[in-house]
Design a protein around this nucleic acid. Structure first.
Lengths: 191, 191
DNA sequence: AAAAAAGTGTGACAAAAGTCACAGCGGTAA
DNA sequence: TTACCGCTGTGACTTTTGTCACACTTTTTT
C-alpha cells in the first residue's frame, strides 16, 4: 500500500489517519498474463490502479476485430468508464499483457471517498483532467496525422512500450493494419 | 446568470449565498458569428460556458487544413484544455458559428472556486467525467467505424447540428474529406 | 526437446479515400 | 439588383490502405 500513498501524495498531502481511512477502500489483486480484468458484458463496477505490469484495453467489433483504446502501466488507472459511471455492462475488454499487481476500487467506495474527503475529490478531478487532455491529443492525432506520424509520435510518447509490446498491438492502437504498419517502418529505415 | 444557476443545480444544490459568491467569478460576453474566442498562440487561460449559440473548436495543421475537435452549443463548456491546464499557449482555435452568449471563467478563479467549495470541485469532476466518456466514445468510433457509420452515429447523437451546420464541417469532424462524405450519403439514399 | 501458438515481413491485388477541377446553387452584402 | 463568396455534388484520376496468402522466426506450452 506504500505505492498507493506515494501515488496519492504526488497530488495531495495526507495525514496518517486520512491514509488509513482511504486505504480501506482498496483491495489488492494479482493478475497473470492473459488474464482478463474486465470482459464485455461484465458488471464493470471496479476501477483499477496498476502498481506493476502492463494491460491493454480494447474494443471488439462484431467481426471479432480488436481496436486498442489504451495501454496502461504502472500508476495508471483503468476502468471501462462508460460502464463504470453509468452502471451499465462493459463494452470493453481489459487484459493483462505482463504479470501485474493492481488495487481495486469500487464505484460506491470511490464516490464515498470523494464525498467524504474534499482532497480525494480533488485528486480524482486532477487525474481525470490529465486523462482528458491525453485523449484530446489522441483525437487530434487520429484526425490530422498520417499513420507514419502517429507511429513516430507513439514512439516518442511511449518509448518503453515501443520495445515491450508486439507491433501488431501498436498497429491496433494507431488504427492501421499490421501489414501497413510493418511497411511504414521497413520502407523508411534509411530516412 | 439565471442560466448559470440552473446549469450548476443540475448537479449540485446551492444556497443563495453560495451562488452569489460563485457568480462573481463569471464574466458574461457576447460573441458574433465568425468571431474567435481563442486563436492559436493565445494565452488561453479562459474557459467558457456557452449560454446560447454554436461554436466549433479546431486544430489547424501546417498546411492550413482544419480538423474539428468538437462542436459546442448551449450548456457546453469549452476551452483549449491543454493550454488551459498547463498554462501554455493555445494550439487550437475556437470560433463562433452562430451569434452567442458565453460566461468566461479564468483558470485562477476556477481553481479558487474548486478549492473553496467542495461542491464546485464535485461539479467540475462530474462534468469532466462526462467529457471524458464522450471522448472515449469518439476514439473508439474513429478507430473502429467506417466513415459511413460515423456519419450515421453523428446524426443520431447530434440531430440538431446535422441540420444547422454545413456538411463540410461535419466532414472535418468525422475525419474524411468533404467529397467523400458527400458521396457517402448520395450513394446510399435508396438504402 | 518437440510441438503449438503467436508474431512478423512481403508480394499481389482489391477497395477505400483523397485530390483536383469544374459547375451550379443560394445566401449575403454592397 | 447585381456581384461575390461559400457550400455542395460529381467526374476522372492518384494515392493510400486493407486484405489474403504464405513463409519464416520467436515465444510459449506440454
Amino acid at each position: 500500500m506504500d505505492k498507493l500513498r506515494k501515488h496519492l501524495e504526488e497530488i495531495i498531502a495526507l495525514s496518517d489517519e486520512e491514509f488509513e481511512y482511504i486505504k480501506t477502500f482498496f483491495v489488492p489483486k494479482r493478475v497473470k498474463k492473459h488474464q482478463y480484468l474486465i470482459q464485455e458484458g461484465d458488471q464493470a463496477n471496479l476501477e483499477y490502479l496498476i502498481l506493476s505490469g502492463i494491460f491493454r484495453m480494447f474494443y471488439l467489433d462484431s467481426e471479432g476485430k480488436e481496436y486498442i483504446v489504451q495501454f496502461a502501466g504502472e500508476n495508471w488507472w483503468m476502468a471501462d468508464y462508460q460502464a463504470y459511471f453509468n452502471a451499465k455492462k462493459a463494452t470493453l475488454h481489459i487484459t493483462c499483457m505482463e504479470d501485474a499487481e493492481v488495487l481495486c476500487l469500487n464505484l460506491a467506495g470511490r464516490e464515498k471517498l470523494a464525498a467524504g474527503l474534499h482532497k480525494m475529490e480533488h485528486f480524482f478531478r486532477v487525474k481525470l483532467t490529465k486523462g482528458y487532455t491525453a485523449q484530446h491529443r489522441r483525437i487530434i492525432s487520429l484526425l490530422s496525422s498520417t499513420p507514419q506520424q502517429r507511429y513516430e509520435e507513439f514512439g516518442l510518447l511511449y518509448p518503453h512500450l515501443m520495445q515491450k509490446i508486439p507491433k501488431k498491438y501498436i498497429a491496433e492502437y494507431l488504427g492501421v493494419s499490421r501489414e501497413t504498419l510493418s511497411r511504414l517502418y521497413t520502407n523508411s529505415k534509411g530516412r
